[in-house]
Design a protein around this nucleic acid. Structure first.
Length: 280
DNA sequence: AGCTACTCCTGGTAGC
DNA sequence: TGCTACCAGGAGTAGC
């Protein structure tokens, strides 16, 4: 599902399609996608100009310029499980799952397509309020090794749920947590405050390496959901070491990859590379 | 503080 | 073939 690398790929590809365009009429086919008030949403974005398309964690944030309005505000988009963004010609059919469609001043239309309806396509006068709970960007300057060491020590939580917690670090999801933990040779149930310094360094490096490599390959597509806005699948799934590889041999040691459940999430690991918490 | 369960949704698939 | 039951999955919320 779209995690940081997929969202960043979408951001890079869609930004030139949106920056400088003015939003005209907005059509909302599923009220909850815009937070429940279709008319208020349409009124808020009408006449707004897109200044940029940024990313914070798994959120896309597009600051707007709204001449004559009290506050400029921003579009805040979260794709969750199945959300996609498409910029298409007006006569193009976005299909049955288009939840929000915004006409653009260049004649095209921005469609928010979301089969499972978990995603959000919101307007916020103060977008920072929605984002303030997020932890540091794992590829940003604040995510340093000393920060991670002290943050891990300050919590007493299993690594997997902690890394999935967007308030701890922003942008990791189920796939990249599993891949990261395998790379760092850490079991998902190891308690955060029990990690020794070399393991913390391995985790810090693994998070950055996995995310950077995935962005380089335009994210991962292993089902029909994720595509770049140009319709292309990413290719990082070809590099998966554990995710979706239950029953197959670990490429590093040959042991059979196991699939277990941790906090209601499918969790993939190599029992030899990633020793259980007890055996350290 | 951290855990578990529950909710939101739908397409896909397993089982009959 | 056609039906039902169940599952995945991010994140917010509630209760313990």
């Amino acid at each position: 599902m779209p995690e940081l690398p997929e969202v960043e790929t979408i951001r890079r590809l869609i930004e030139p399609e949106l920056v400088g365009r003015e939003i005209g009429r907005a059509r909302v086919d599923w009220a909850r996608s815009v937070g429940g008030e279709p008319r208020a949403f349409a009124r808020a974005v009408r006449g707004a100009r897109v200044r940029a398309v940024g990313r914070r964690g798994k959120f896309l944030v597009a600051p707007l310029e709204r001449p004559g309005r009290r506050v400029d505000g921003a579009l805040v988009v979260h794709l969750r499980m199945s959300g996609r963004l498409h910029v298409e010609a007006a006569e193009e059919d976005p299909g049955p799952y288009a939840r929000v469609s915004c006409e653009l001043s260049d004649g095209k239309v921005l469609h928010f397509v979301d089969v499972r309806k978990f995603g959000r396509f919101l307007f916020r006068e103060r977008p920072e309020e929605l984002l303030q709970h997020l932890g540091p960007e794992p590829l940003g300057e604040a995510f340093t090794l000393p920060w991670l060491r002290s943050a891990l020590r300050g919590r007493r939580r299993a690594l997997k749920p902690l890394l999935l917690d967007q308030g701890f670090v922003a942008g990791l999801g189920n796939i990249y947590v599993d891949e990261t933990l395998h790379r760092a040779r850490l079991h998902p149930l190891v308690r955060s405050d029990r990690l020794r310094a070399p393991r913390v360094a391995a985790l810090h490096a693994a998070i950055r390496q996995v995310l950077a490599a995935a962005i380089e390959r335009e994210g991962s597509s292993f089902d029909t959901f994720y595509r770049t806005p140009e319709g292309r699948p990413g290719s990082y799934q070809e590099r998966f070491e554990v995710y979706g590889r239950g029953g197959k041999p670990c490429r590093r040691c040959g042991a059979t990859i196991r699939k277990i459940v941790v906090c209601q999430r499918g969790t993939h690991l190599c029992p030899r590379c990633q020793r259980t918490p007890r055996s350290g």
